[in-house]
Design a protein around this nucleic acid. Structure first.
Lengths: 163, 163
DNA sequence: ACCTGAACACCGTTCAAGT
DNA sequence: ACCTGAACACCGTTCAAGT
């Protein structure tokens, strides 16, 4: 069989959903595709690059069109969207958290941008974005009420600084 | 050579500090001690148990005597203590975060207790403790000003609910 | 109580060579 | 462009047997 990069990502997401992140090894995925493990290195420079591509695809699928709204409502919606996207897949939060360690920038950018539009300075925008993102990643297993409570705590803190 | 459990933990912390969490394998640690890898399973049921013992020891070393103070000052101090303890070791935050995944309870308890003493109900105490802990783990690499800012955000949110 | 020796069932990664 | 075959240098874990 011959595959393109996107085929490999799609199959990797299937393995993830069916067997979890711990089972998603290069060898296992290759075996699933019916190719040798080394063949995957034609598509990705290493495993982290594959995981990043999976995270990209998961987040792309969960992306919704931007709307014009108040900054706190926007942050709320961004966090909910992120939470929904990652909860659609087994070990989604663990995967996103792993990728976030290597590239914090990409995930935090939309949150930071919303904070800056609300008048936050660079420091507050950066820290606020990071803290919100960590909150989302930390509460994957929490129910919606717990998540809303944690998010409310943080948004209150931000409101106290941004009016 | 013959070792006791505590010797192994102490040496593991040395390996951690010198070479990082990724290099801290059972085989490597055993080699460093001059024993076979299998010998470690006399002291720990598995690698996670070893990592938990390391985390315990790191946090034990960082523990300070309890003082009587306002709940928000106490939370502030607990978070600072946790941050200091884990920053004393290479990959300290990653190690604590890993152990926290398996046993969230132990690390969150003191934070939750402080929140309950402040009048928080069970939900707010649980979510507040978890969010604070995640904040500490998330900002290992941040400078003190960024950390203080993130912590301030959250404490403001808590103050708004607890008076 | 603590360790050896040896095995089992895995990993990620590289690379010359093939089509 | 994509894959094979085979190797390299590792993992965590188990367990009978030794002292």
């Amino acid at each position: 069989m011959r595959y393109r990069r996107d085929d490999v990502v799609a199959r990797a997401i299937e393995v993830l959903d069916a067997h979890g992140l711990a089972a998603l090894s290069m060898r296992r995925l290759a075996g699933d595709l019916g190719v040798q493990a080394g063949a995957l290195y034609h598509h990705f420079t290493n495993k982290d690059a594959l995981l990043a591509a999976i995270a990209d695809e998961i987040l792309r699928r969960g992306r919704r069109p931007a709307e014009i709204m108040a900054w706190d409502a926007e942050l709320h919606l961004l966090c909910l969207g992120l939470r929904d996207a990652m909860r659609r897949h087994r070990d989604g939060a663990a995967l996103i958290a792993h990728v976030h360690r290597a590239d914090a920038e990409a995930l935090e950018r939309p949150l930071r941008a919303a904070l800056e539009r609300a008048g936050a300075d660079a420091d507050l925008a950066r820290v606020g974005a990071r803290t919100l993102l960590r909150l989302v990643l930390a509460h994957e297993d929490a129910d919606d009420a717990d998540f809303a409570l944690g998010l409310g705590l943080l948004l209150d803190g931000l409101r106290a600084r941004l009016g």
